[in-house]
Amino acid sequence: MSTRIDTRFAELRKQGRAAFVTFLMAGDPDPATSLAIIQALPEAGADIIEIGMPFTDPMADGPAVQAAGRRALKAGMTVTKTLQMIRDFRQNEDATPVVLMGYYNPIYIYGVERFLVDAKAAGIDGLIVVDLPPEEDSELCIPAMKAGLNFIRLATPTTDDKRLPAVLANTSGFVYYVSITGITGSAAADSAAVGAAVGRIKRHTDLPVCVGFGIRTPEAARGIAEGADGAVVGSALVDALSGSLDTGGKATAGTVNAVAGLVASLAAGVRSARAG
């Protein structure tokens, strides 16, 4: 099985550079603006697009992503509308991989089988579900693999060498290394420590390793991209979006460009690094 994610990493390997992975919340600050932002991402330099599925109780997320989820839910975002948004995005974009990231309950309530069929049909390539560790693989991970979707696992500083094989066993697409113990939007780990951790994971797998949590600037993105196969930026983009809203929390004429502009400069940071 080869997905858009596999194809994208093969291309990037040929170019000799790391991937720039963006995270934004579906429906933030409203469904129409959210779609416009996502449509602008590939041209701005995003190699892989992660889309958050809003949830009322995001216990692994910091204040920025929590607020993004609240804005999206307030604007009426649902699982169904999230899938529709990706379907709309796919009308004009077939190459950039899309990964849905979120918590299990909305998927569980939507119905796992139905969700996988609809996600695949919408053009989604992979899933990251924060509260499904390998111990619960039978819930969604195994069914997702069978449905032809990558199930991307998080590895963390607490995932030691003994546990890594279990974490990697049913992972596909790429491995998402969470560079710190903490929530999204926390302070970054230094790139040397991250490089060592990526090296440790790579001794256990041939999958690309992308690194996220705490990357906010083009310089930090470049530092990470030198030691990893990809750099993920989320909270900084969400903050740029949030900063462009009016006092009532509504999108302004500058919202799409605020996000796309930061994506472009971060992408330049990633592209300036030479993968090792």
Binding site: P133, P134, E135, E136, L154, T156, T159, T181
Partner: peptide, 20 residues
Amino acid sequence: ERGHFGIFGGRFVAETLMPL
């Protein structure tokens, strides 16, 4: 042994917490 009472219970946590 996996913490289930029928279909209920389990260990639905982030990977960071799982080793703990």
